[in-house]
């Protein structure tokens, strides 16, 4: 199986865990105690804030730190495209990025991935 693209904006990742909350019609339930049945009212299509987790390998910790700075710049920037497994999910606002972990992946034998020494895990809060 070929390597599939996972990206947020221009940044690619090995994996994106979690799924976006896609824009969809919001409905208000119209109900009243003692009255049978329900109605709904359309409030407009919009998403809700959701969280995804990205995993990527970086050449070293400095590169991971640099990437993190780049990710932070997306907070407050225009919406960016989210691609999961080569499929675009649409554009999303980045509401926040929090680094979960960065750790060494080199052992005595060598790296799991050639030339990369750091695993970088980041939590993203986004809005569709």
């Amino acid at each position: 199986m070929p390597v599939l693209t996972n990206s947020i904006g221009t940044y690619e990742f090995l994996e994106i865990q979690g799924a976006p909350h896609l824009r969809q019609e919001q409905l208000e339930l119209i109900e009243r105690a003692g009255v049978d049945g329900s109605g709904v009212r359309k409030l407009g299509a919009r998403g809700k804030p959701f969280q995804i987790r990205t995993i990527n390998y970086e050449t070293d910790f400095a590169a991971a730190k640099s990437k993190m700075d780049n990710y932070k710049a997306l907070v407050g920037a225009d919406p960016v495209e989210l691609i999961r497994q080569d499929e675009t999910e649409g554009t999303f606002l980045v509401l926040g990025v929090i680094e979960e972990q960065r750790y060494a992946i080199m052992n005595a034998v060598g790296g799991l991935v050639g030339g990369e020494e750091c695993c970088h895990i980041v939590n993203w809060t986004m809005l569709g």
């Binding site: 208000e28 119209i30 329900s38 109605g39 709904v40 009212r41 359309k42 409030l43 407009g44």
Partner: peptide, 9 residues
């Protein structure tokens, strides 16, 4: 009663 199950806002 608007007599509609789904109504627009």
């Amino acid at each position: 009663d608007p007599a509609e199950t789904v109504s627009e806002f």
